[in-house]
Amino acid sequence: MSTNPAKLVQSASEDAIKSVRAQFAPMYHLHEKVIELQMNTLSQILDFMGRRMKAQSDFFHSLGQCHDLTKMSEVQSRFWQRVSEDYTTEVGQLTEMARESVDKIAKAAASKTPQSHAA
């Protein structure tokens, strides 16, 4: 039985490519999870910045409506109280997002290790 050397080389090359892809698949999956974490975090931060910019704009508008120092003091006090609340809430949300993402990445890494592929 004769075999075509070109076909043997092509078959060996295809097998090698499949093997390399299988070995790099776990890293690609982890990379995907890391990018997902980064995009979710960036989205959350940009959303927060947008809300804060709106609050800042509303604050300046409210200041323009003040006709005495007492009213101005009340507006400023409410604004700074809200700033404190918003930043505290945001830090909590970002912390929770990071914790959940690290858990997902760790689980993905554990399930995609070379040992788990061999099992």
Rank of each mutant, 00 (worst) to 15 (best):
M1F: 12
M1Q: 09
S2K: 11
P5A: 03
A6H: 02
Q10A: 12
Q10P: 00
S11Q: 14
S11L: 04
S13M: 12
S13G: 11
E14N: 09
I17M: 04
K18C: 06
S19Y: 11
S19A: 14
V20S: 08
R21P: 05
Q23K: 14
Q23L: 12
A25D: 05
P26M: 05
M27S: 13
M27N: 07
H29W: 08
E32P: 03
E32G: 07
K33G: 00
I35C: 05
I35L: 14
I35E: 15
E36C: 01
L37Q: 12
L37I: 02
Q38G: 09
N40F: 03
N40V: 01
N40E: 09
T41R: 02
L42E: 14
Q44V: 08
I45P: 02
L46M: 07
L46N: 08
F48K: 01
M49D: 13
G50E: 00
G50W: 03
R51E: 10
M53P: 10
M53Y: 03
M53N: 13
K54S: 06
A55L: 12
Q56C: 06
Q56M: 11
S57K: 09
F59N: 05
H61V: 15
H61K: 15
S62A: 11
C66H: 01
H67D: 09
H67F: 13
L69E: 10
K71R: 13
M72Y: 04
S73R: 11
S77N: 03
S77A: 13
R78V: 07
R78H: 08
W80G: 01
W80L: 04
W80K: 08
Q81F: 05
S84L: 08
E85L: 15
D86W: 00
D86S: 07
Y87K: 00
Y87E: 09
T88Y: 00
E90S: 01
E90K: 05
E90T: 08
V91F: 14
Q93D: 13
L94S: 06
L94M: 09
T95L: 00
E96L: 13
M97I: 11
M97H: 11
A98S: 08
E100G: 12
E100S: 08
E100T: 11
S101E: 02
S101Y: 02
S101V: 05
V102G: 02
K104W: 00
K104M: 03
K104V: 08
K104L: 06
I105Q: 05
I105V: 07
A109M: 01
A110Q: 05
A110E: 09
S111L: 13
T113R: 10
P114S: 04
A118V: 11
A119Y: 09
